[in-house]
């Protein structure tokens, strides 16, 4: 029986080595490109069909999902400020969602199950929030480390605590997405391994479960993409409003 972690392995498809640096195109990169292409062509098709006053099926899906993200941005960042960040948040949501869903196709690769990928997203967002904070508030931004209304005696204690909770944000953001995707796909692989190794009389039971859990995984793909974008909005909003 194959190892249930086998499908997380990265192996090169087109080996490229430039000056000792491994730039090979591997299955993870391919899956990322597929995710990108899915988002890109979905919106291209919507626009090519003509944006109508009475939307067709595809246009409705695109409009509802964009409106949904619009509401998210409005709620957590603010109506005026949110306009600047809407394109970033929307592309983040659609890319993660597409990658999660592409990963559910048997034989493909779940790019979001790699901590490197989610970590890079979260680290980028963390740096982005720092830049926004310092650009907007200058040195006053450091007051984010001192919650308002804290007595003076508590300040030396509160600053390390706030630093820790600040640093914990990108880590929890990346670990949440990575852990949920990895766990779900491992469960699927284990159940499927059971289905393949059991006799026909018993094999239908774990196989039935894989079908059910696949449905659950589709829901998880949406929910995790939603949580990731919500928290991105919350973090950007926190930095803009500064308490």
């Amino acid at each position: 029986m194959e190892s249930p972690l086998h499908h997380f392995e990265v192996h090169p498809v087109i080996p490229i080595h430039v000056m000792g640096v491994d730039l090979s195109i591997n299955n993870a990169v391919l899956a990322m490109w597929v995710g990108l292409a899915v988002v890109f062509f979905f919106f291209i098709v919507v626009v090519k069909n003509g944006v109508k006053t009475i939307p067709g099926k595809l246009q409705s899906v695109a409009e509802i999902s964009l409106l949904f993200i619009r509401n998210l941005v409005d709620e957590f960042i603010g109506k005026e400020e949110g306009k600047k960040y809407f394109p970033f948040v929307a592309s983040l949501f659609f890319f993660i969602l597409a990658c999660n869903l592409v990963g559910l196709i048997p034989g493909s690769y779940t790019i979001t199950s790699q901590l490197v990928v989610t970590g890079a997203f979260a680290f980028g967002i963390f740096i982005l929030t720092l830049i926004i904070g310092f650009a907007k508030h200058g040195a006053h931004f450091l007051s984010i480390l001192v919650p308002p209304g804290v007595p003076k005696i508590m300040i030396p204690l509160m600053i390390p605590i706030e630093i820790i909770s600040m640093v914990a944000r990108p880590i929890s953001l990346s670990v949440r997405l990575f852990a949920n995707m990895t766990a779900g796909h491992t469960v699927l692989a284990v159940l499927f391994g059971l289905a393949m190794s059991a006799s026909v009389f018993l094999g239908w039971l774990p196989f039935g479960f894989t079908v059910v859990i696949n449905g659950l995984e589709i829901a998880i793909a949406f929910i995790q993409a939603y949580i990731f974008t919500t928290l991105t909005c919350v973090y950007i909003g926190d930095v803009i409003k500064l308490h």
Binding site: I164, S172, V175, R176, Q224, T230
Partner: peptide
């Protein structure tokens, strides 16, 4: 989203 957030938030902060 709250269910997914709370547990990880607690663990990660301790680890950090």
């Amino acid at each position: 989203s709250i269910a997914f957030r709370l547990g990880i938030e607690l663990t990660v902060a301790t680890l950090v």
